[in-house]
Design a protein around this nucleic acid. Structure first.
Lengths: 163, 163
DNA sequence: ATCCCTCATGAAACAAACTTGCGCGCATAG
DNA sequence: CTATGCGCGCAAGTTTGTTTCATGAGGGAT
């Protein structure tokens, strides 16, 4: 694993704020925006990537333009919360390509999944495969998204622990 | 607005699959992977961007490495589902920078929010601002994420509506 | 107090990638 | 059968990303 935390100064945060919105921004422009030279920006970006602060550089695809994808939320409740059973569930859920996001949470549910499927029939198939065939799944609740009001993974830049 | 849908062939889907994982992949490598020349890849990418299929190119930042961000799910139930009240809610929720994602859903809840905050105190402040001061919010349930098992916006590439 | 070591920066050179223009082949329509 | 439009590949030009190098600031030890 990478280091749990590295020092981030205001330059790093400014760079992250830009790349979070558009990582195709030329380093030259980034440098101008944060008052740093292009190579300096380059080194910082590499450091952030190696440290895991930048987890990935990806293109965001609009599901609505690809077939007619349906976004679904699932709250999953498990029977037993032993460490190994949780690991099993995490691995199974993560393995499904339809599962975009999976969180282990506190509260009335244990897992929250965000699923994208082309049709409801695909979702039904997924539930059979993921939930009904897993004895540790007590119950699950389904929420179908009618509107993606706001979608993003942009993290608010908190200057905590930085100079 | 862009066209609601454009034709996507297997080349486009293959390209999208790659860029969804890493949009820093050189077009030359993309071309090799899909058996196309670099300029052809380039033109297709541009078309996909203009059509809105590629909504954005962004760097994914791990919140855990930025301060100690907490991911929280909120199920919001509203009193009245008139169009204008929903619009108000959508706008208010979207305006909050802490709200990463907001969906309007069917089921036992009306909205599902994904929130990122540095501390629980910030979340409490957010609830006051967003929920308690909004008379149309009947109730809300909170789920705190203990583990981000899987995070992504990767859309499964469905060859529907393509050659 | 001085020296030395380490580290990050900026300027320039270098390499790689992106972008554009051109001609060709294929599919479709007339 | 011919004409037209679309998308491809090739090659050149341009921008961008990457490396190298010398300089200056900060820290610790003598």
């Amino acid at each position: 694993m990478a280091k749990p935390a590295i020092e981030l100064d205001s330059f790093d945060l400014a760079i992250l704020a830009i790349l979070q919105k558009d990582n195709a921004t030329p380093q030259r422009l980034v440098g101008e925006a944060v008052n740093l030279s292009a190579p300096a920006v380059q080194r910082r970006i590499r450091r952030l990537e190696e440290a895991g602060v930048i987890a990935a550089n990806v293109a965001i695809v609009d599901p609505a333009r690809i077939g007619q994808a349906i976004t679904i939320f699932v709250e999953v409740e498990v029977v037993s919360e032993t460490a190994e059973l949780l690991d099993v569930a995490k691995r199974e859920f993560s393995a499904a390509p339809e599962v975009q996001q999976c969180y282990y949470v506190t509260g009335e549910a244990d897992f929250i999944l965000i699923v994208i499927v082309p049709t409801m029939a695909d979702y039904e198939a997924l539930t059979r495969r993921l939930f009904f065939s897993n004895n540790n799944v007590k119950k699950f609740r389904t929420f179908v998204a009618m509107d993606r009001v706001k979608v993003g993974l942009t993290v608010p830049l908190t200057p905590s622990g930085a100079a």
